[in-house]
Write a protein that binds this DNA or RNA. Structure first.
Lengths: 107, 107
DNA sequence: TGTATATATGAACAATTGTTCATATATTTA
DNA sequence: TAAATATATGAACAATTGTTCATATATACA
């Protein structure tokens, strides 16, 4: 059978790797609900600002979030619909497997 | 706003982490096409048998693939539809972003 | 122009990850 | 039961990753 294009396998791995960290999941989950600036994310996720910025850079570089500057603040949002779909699919899978109630993804 | 359930963020991160490696992507992509036993995967992906087995264990433990023993051989398949959907969504996203032609995911 | 506020970056370190080599286990068949 | 085949596992090592601390950059406003 035909193997996957080698470059695509690496790119796809790098892409999914970005979803593979709880801090980034929290960021994406927050942005799934509404666009937010950095300081809102800092507060919402109770996370160190520097750590957040590093993670946001990774998300940006991998086209998972986009941003626009608005004066002093920078507003982040999910890059496209694939990101939300991926997140929701992951949550569904995990919920089924772990017996979570999906509707209680939020605390 | 309500943050994501902390445990779900970790579980989801662990889940996506499994997709974040080119070797595992190749395995999953192969299984997306048809179920295969270990030695078929070894040959198809030109990979070390031990490395493959280690990766298959990870995929199993995270409910991403399932398997059934058939005599001396063990046949692997994708665990459920979410896995295929996730892969396809990732490929779509990457293809759009990198200007790949999706139809040429195969070599 | 100087100060405050918001965000980004670099260096360094501990922790995690993926592979290899060697070996173990399971199943079939002689 | 012994030998052959298929698959799994453990230990060890290099490489990668995520965070923290310190500092840099950008914008607004006095």
């Amino acid at each position: 059978m035909k193997p996957i294009n080698e470059e695509l396998a690496y790119d796809l791995g790098d892409f999914f790797k970005i979803f593979g960290d709880p801090t980034r999941i929290k960021i994406l989950y927050a942005l799934l609900q509404r666009d937010m600036c950095v300081s809102e994310l800092v507060e919402a996720l109770a996370i160190n600002q520097s750590a957040l910025s590093h993670q946001l850079r990774l998300l940006r570089q991998n086209d998972i979030v986009k941003f626009k500057r608005d004066g002093k603040t920078v507003i982040y949002s999910l890059d496209d619909e694939h990101v939300g779909i991926l997140l929701k699919n992951g949550i569904e899978h995990i919920s089924h497997k772990n017996g979570y109630d999906e509707s209680e993804a939020y605390i």
